[in-house]
Structure formats: C-alpha cells, structure tokens
Design a binder for these strands. Structure first.
Length: 611
DNA sequence: ATAGGGTTAG
C-alpha cells in the first residue's frame, strides 16, 4: 500500500470522526483499523510522526493494539525507539495493562535490529521482570536471539538461569535458541554442545544450530562430522542444515565432499532455496571448480548480488580477472546494483590479475557511479593492486593520501611488495614501525626476518628469533589438507601422526632428489630457525604441503590431478618445489592457499609467480 | 505471535 494514497483515506476517516461526534465509537473503530493498515507501510520517521499526530488526535495513543502493530512492522531503529517509548510512556502508564505480548513485541523488534540496540531487547526483558510480568515461552527465543547477536555469554547465562527457574527449559524452541545462543557467544560452544547432547529429541533445527555453530567458528571438520552423526540419527537435514554444511565444506576446500553434498541434496530432495543455490555456487567457486560454479550460476533463474559476488570472487581467486570484470559488467547490465562486497571481489580480481587500469577505473566508479563510500577493505585492495604490480611509490602515495587510517593489513601488503620488488630498506622501516604498533603479531616478525634474509643480514635475523622467543610467540603452524577416498587428511610440518608416515617421508626424500636433479634450489631464506643449511633444507622438505603431495603421489594412480588446501599463503619454497613436482611426476596440482588458487602444470603455475 | 542459513581485502 502506498502511504500517500492511503493517507487521504485516513484523513477522510478522521474527518468523518470529527464531523460526527455522536458516532465516534463506530468511527474510532474504523480509524483504528485504518491506522493499523497504515502502520503496515510505515517505514520512516517523518511518516510515523505524521501518523502519530493523527493517533493522538484520535486518542489512539493508548491503544496497545495499534502500538504493538507499530513496533512489529517497523524495521527502522528510530521507529522502534519511538514506538516502544509510546508503549511504555511514563506519564499515563498503567503497568497493570502491560502483558507478556506487549513486551514480546518490543523485545522481538529490538532483537531483530542489526545494531548494538539488541541490548535494548535485554533491557526490556529486565523491565518485564521488574514489572512483575511473567515471560512466556515466546519471550525466551527473542531474548536469547538478542544475546546471541550481542555475543554476550554473560547475558546469555543470566537468561538461561531464568529459563530454568521459570521452567521453559523443556520447550524445543527455547532449547534450540539456547543452543544457538551459546554457539554465538565466545567461549560458549562447549556448553552448547553439552546442551545439545542432552536434548531428548533434537530436530533438524537443533542439528542446524549446532552444525552452524561449528561452521561459523571455523571448526569445519567438527561441522562435517556432526552432519555425519545427524545422518546416522535419522533426522532429515533441511536446506538450512545443508547451507551450514556447505559453508564448512567451502572452508575446508573439500571438493569431493562438496560434490557428494550436491548429489545428496538432489537424492534427498532437499528444497533448493535461493540461499542453498548460492551456497552451492560459492562452494564450487572456492573448492576449485569455478567453471562448475559458473554453470550452476547460469542455470539458476533467480540471481542475487550474492550469487554474482560468489562467481566474481571465484574468478578472482583463480586469477581469471578479466572474466571477473566481464561478469561484473554483465551484472550491471542485467540491473543488479553492485554493493560494497561486490566491489571488494572485483578489485581483488583486478589485483590478482595485474589489471591496474581497470582497478583504478572501478575504484573511482564505485563512488562516482554507485555512491558507495570506499571502506578500509577497498583501500586495501588498491594498495594490494599497486603493490603487486610493483608500483611501490604509487602504493605508498596512495596510503599516505587515504582518508582513513591504514590498518596493519595494508601495511603488510606494502611490506610484501617491498620484499618482492627489492625495496628492502623501505620494507624494513615500515615493518619496524608496524612492530612498534603491533608488538604481539607474530607475522610482522616473520616479515622482518624474511626481509633480513633477503638483505643477507643473518645476525639481525637471529635477534628477531630471540625477541620472538622472549615474547613467547611462535609461528602459526602451516597445515595442508587433502581429500582421498572420502577421507580428509590434514598434515602439519614434520607431521608423524599419519600411520604411513615412514613411506611418506621416503617419498619426500625421493621427491627432493628428483627435484635437485631437475635443477631445484631450496629457498632456505624462508626458514626462520637459526640452523645450518642442511637442516634448513630438511625443514623445508617437511613442510605440510610437501608431505601432502608425497602422500597423494603414493596413494593415487599416475596422472591423477592432486588437489590440496593450505591454511596459510604458500611459501616461496613450496611454490617453486611444486612447479618442479608437477613436471617431474606429470601431475596437475591445484593448491588453494589462504588467498587464491594455484594451478601447477608442467612446471608452470597459473599465478605467474605472483601471489 | 515462537527457533536454524549465504557473499567480503592480506
């Protein structure tokens, strides 16, 4: 309903009411009805203020029916503030009129806001208890949702205590939100799991809440594991469960699992909601089959900005920047307005493909043509774009001119570029400054150490190692994941937990010999430890990536492509080694690292040694 | 009038 057209109708109702003072009862009722209808379409403060004037004139300001409608239909935060203050107006407030429904409406409205105002939901809940109004079984899901949104374990626990006291702890909906709340609050996950395990009859919502909890925290193996348990339990997964599992699968980069999930969705006839389709597209894009993602995308009739962003980012990760640009243009032509996230994807695509001119064009176009104010992420993309292209001076100038404070991520992009392009002095000074600002971030020390290695300042490198040791910092362990025969294997450097580790290490040694024969030189400057060169070589050979590749060479037939997923950026030595391995063993090797995909084939990598 | 989901730079 258009506000302007219904407004005249509303005014007519008011006029009728005013001109027939003796039949006000009937007309008041009509006015109330019109008012309720009007509230449906109310979404801004000026409209509300206008409406409020009429509400006052008609004496409807004390009508809870009108006001609860008011609250529950507005999505705008100010409208919620306004309506709830009317509902609980202090002047003529008669607290005996307050009931649970009234409170629930306001609590729900605040719980659904996207901002910190979720705290108001909790405040109104407190107010409800103080007013002596007993919460009902609908109150708790709202309050718990607000706690989940705030991520406050403290508030959550308070509410939990109250649930136990009042006794809604057996209600399935309350239990499910409780699990969800603990999953969303830092440090609450284990307790969520305890509650979940104690549930007498978890339904698909309970399983989804728990699986989603693991997925959000990056505990993807646990998420997938719990999904397997769910299948055993016999509860049918729905599309929301599948979105969560796919999200975990995407995080793992487990293409085989992803393919299996796709066929499972078809077999089990899970409803393919828009979000599920997007999750599938995203999964294929990020698990290394971007063409499949594109096919799914083309087959989907309803595309949202999310679907477009997924394929654009997918192309970016595979270094197919110009295709990302083409997709972006196609999106514009088909009338989907890009948002800030789409621009991050597009700019990173330009950055990973060296499209400097295009990057500049879109960075400027973002504000000029779409009115999107660049955020730190967009500036980060531009610094990365210029840095990767070796335009260090321009990058530095760009950083100095930025209207917002550069963050450590931006400085690190610049430092890496300095190292790669030989601007070692500049790199050193920026890194030192960064360490002063961020003394406990271990990767800063690793950067400085690598710069010193390139400058041949070994004694300074040793000092860094000592400083790190004194501060009790350790390098984040690199790990590599590989899927074989429906099983996910994870390797860390020097890993000996695998039951075939002896054969794997033999294979690693053999690989090393073959690579040397083919002309490979170990990049020992990547090793942070202060050990002799031979041990450094040994340390490099035990990198998780090499272990995983050795394992794959052992376990798969000749010629089979190898896919691995790293948790960090691939190190220079592994990058060089993998090129040799792809040629020597005639294997296509696809590596997903923290940022992007590397397709190694016949001694060449698709990233053109630029990552 | 009640619960659970997706995209984002390095």
């Amino acid at each position: 309903m258009q506000f302007s057209s219904s407004k005249s109708k509303f005014l007519r109702t008011i006029n009728t009411s005013l001109h027939h003072p003796h039949s006000t009862a009937v007309n008041k009722r009509a006015a109330e009805q019109t008012c309720l209808a009007l509230l449906q379409s109310c979404d801004s403060i000026p409209k509300l203020t206008q409406l409020h004037t009429h509400i006052l004139k008609l004496g409807l300001h004390n009508n809870p029916l009108v006001l609860t409608k008011f609250t529950s239909t507005s999505s705008d935060l100010n409208s919620i503030h306004y309506a709830s203050s009317l509902l609980f107006a202090s002047d003529d407030a008669n607290t005996s009129l307050y009931d649970a429904f009234l409170f629930n409406t306001v609590i729900r409205a605040y719980a659904q806001t996207s901002s910190q105002s979720k705290h108001s939901a909790f405040c109104y809940y407190k107010f409800m208890l103080q007013s002596g109004v007993l919460p009902n079984k609908f109150t708790y899901p709202f309050v718990l949702k607000a706690c989940a949104g705030l991520g406050s374990l403290n508030l959550g626990k308070q509410v939990h205590g109250s649930v136990l006291k009042i006794g809604f702890d057996t209600d399935l909906h309350v239990q499910n939100t409780m699990v969800h709340m603990y999953c969303c609050c830092g440090g609450g996950l284990e307790f969520a799991r305890t509650l979940f395990d104690e549930m007498p009859k978890p339904d698909s919502v309970s399983w989804s809440a728990m699986i989603g909890g693991y997925a959000r925290l990056g505990m993807s193996i646990n998420a997938v594991g719990l999904f397997r348990e769910m299948q055993i339990s016999g509860v049918r997964p729905d599309e929301i469960t599948m979105v969560s599992v796919l999200s975990a699968c995407t995080d793992l980069g487990a293409l085989e699992l992803g393919k299996w999930l796709e066929s499972y969705i078809d077999k089990a006839k899970v409803h393919k909601s828009l979000e599920l389709c997007n999750a599938l597209i995203n999964m294929f894009a990020k698990c290394g089959d971007v063409d499949k993602a594109l096919n799914l995308f083309r087959d989907t009739s309803e595309r949202t900005i999310v679907s477009w962003t997924s394929v654009i980012v997918g192309m970016a990760m595979h270094g197919r920047g110009s295709e990302a640009v083409t997709l972006f243009e196609e999106m514009r032509e088909t009338g989907t307005a890009p948002d800030d996230v789409a621009f991050i994807g597009l700019l990173s695509a330009c950055s990973h493909s060296g499209l400097v001119e295009e990057g500049w064009y879109y960075f400027n176009s973002m504000t000029k043509d779409f009115g999107i104010i660049p955020k730190i992420e967009h500036y980060g993309c531009m610094v990365d774009l210029l840095s990767r292209a070796g335009l260090i001076k321009e990058a530095l100038e760009f950083v100095q001119k930025m209207p917002i404070e550069p963050n450590p991520i931006i400085w690190r992009a610049l430092i890496i570029a300095c190292r790669v392009h030989g601007e070692l002095k500049l790199g050193e000074s920026i890194t030192k400054q960064l360490i002063r600002n961020e003394p406990m971030h271990e990767s800063n020390y690793v950067l400085l150490s690598n710069i010193y290695a390139k400058m041949f300042h070994w004694e300074k490198k040793t000092v860094i190692r000592e400083v790190m040791e004194k501060k009790g910092m350790r390098k984040i362990p690199g790990s590599t994941m590989i899927e074989l025969d429906n099983e996910i294997y994870e390797f860390v450097a020097g890993d000996k937990t695998h039951n075939q580790y002896k054969e794997i290490y033999q294979m690693v040694d053999e690989m090393g010999r073959e690579m040397k024969r083919a002309g490979y030189l170990p990049t020992t400057s990547e090793v942070l430890l202060d050990i002799d060169e031979e041990d450094k070589e040994d340390a490099l050979n035990r990198h998780s990536e090499k272990l995983a590749i050795a394992f794959a060479l052992l376990k798969t037939p000749p010629g089979t492509p190898i896919r691995i997923v790293k948790n960090l950026r691939v190190c220079a030595d592994c990058h060089s080694a993998t090129k040799f391995i792809s040629k020597i063993y005639n294997r296509e090797i696809v590596v997903r690292d923290r940022n992007r995909f590397h397709h190694f084939s016949n001694g060449i990598c698709s990233c053109k040694d630029f990552w």
